[in-house]
Design a protein around this nucleic acid. Structure first.
Lengths: 178, 178
DNA sequence: CCAACCATGTAAGCAGTTACATGATTGC
DNA sequence: GCAATCATGTAACTGCTTACATGGTTGG
């Protein structure tokens, strides 16, 4: 039930198409949510059917038509009610840590490779978040002020990645010493 | 596809019943995976059908029978192959951060309450992980050495919670200043 | 010429949640 | 007496992933 509110939140900040939404998920909320384009389109249809979203078709030159979705009054109310209720707890599902948990099936070189691959991934994520943060800080100050709580979620993403990276680097050192 | 390997890993370390497994998920891998008892039983049946698990029924006095599952040779091989392959990336799904992202629908008092509730939750998680760590350090040193990589996943859980808590405490201060 | 991007969808299947079902024992 | 723990399951449903489908434009 949370995806729908993620969709409503982004469209509340700025209306857009399913395609736009997919890109905005990747660029601005990937540190706490992800969804495929199929999920987007399905959720948009549902929210439209339920009257929480308006849809305006916008013809484009040389490109397929866009369906621009925006919140209706009912949509804003639904979001407003939901944000104030206690959120369901996070579900953590990290396959890599299962592998480490089964680490007695690995020799040092194999473990090193797995950890190194994840380390690269998390460094890339951190770089992306830092870039996002710099863009936000350079951008419109009024927007930053209006959405300052949203911005704090990004800072948590950055701190989390730093923690992860520090842990992995230490683990690599331990693997080398053994 | 990752749940099955989490199940295989825990049963590889020590055989047990579906009920045992559920408790072990909660006590020892909750920092990176969770699953309901229905999922456990379904997965155990499947793994048994596929010949990756053996099952021995153990009658008990005054309690329902237990079905003790243990890895077969094929089960050990399947786990061995899987742990060496690159793991699929983590899926992050954190409803609370959606709420903060929609924070322009909240006044300061409401935001404070939501953050405080999550902070309490994460402090409780941290306390649980620290307890788990102390139990591990006080326990059998040979076991700790054999499963040292598994133990490192717990240390990551502890560091992650500390990061989360520090972030939330700072956010509460900011909310108070505004 | 090929890959990447723009733009939207359907269909099948697997993963995960919620509700229901049973029944004995232990501790407050 | 009631809740919690031990112990295992079925059924229905929702959420998510993977594969398939179409077709034009832009940049190297």
């Amino acid at each position: 039930m949370s995806l729908r509110y993620a969709v409503l939140t982004l469209l509340d900040i700025e209306p857009g198409s399913g395609y736009d939404l997919k890109r905005r998920f990747e660029r601005s909320v990937s540190h706490f949510w992800s969804a495929s384009h199929q999920q987007m389109y399905r959720e948009l249809h549902r929210l439209h059917d339920e009257g929480l979203l308006d849809c305006t078709e916008q013809p484009q030159a040389g490109k397929p038509d866009k369906k621009i979705y925006a919140l209706t009054e009912a949509g804003r109310e639904a979001l407003d009610v939901w944000v104030q209720r206690p959120a369901p707890p996070q579900k953590i599902r990290e396959p890599f840590l299962i592998q480490l948990f089964a680490g007695h099936h690995l020799d040092n070189a194999q473990a090193r490779e797995l950890v190194q691959r994840q380390l690269d991934r998390h460094r890339a994520l951190l770089a992306g978040y830092i870039e996002q943060n710099e863009r936000a800080l350079k951008g419109d100050p009024e927007r930053l002020e209006r959405y300052w709580l949203a911005h704090r979620t990004l800072l948590l993403g950055i701190e989390s990645e730093k923690t992860w990276i520090a842990w992995a680097e230490k683990l690599l050192q331990e693997l080398d010493r053994r």
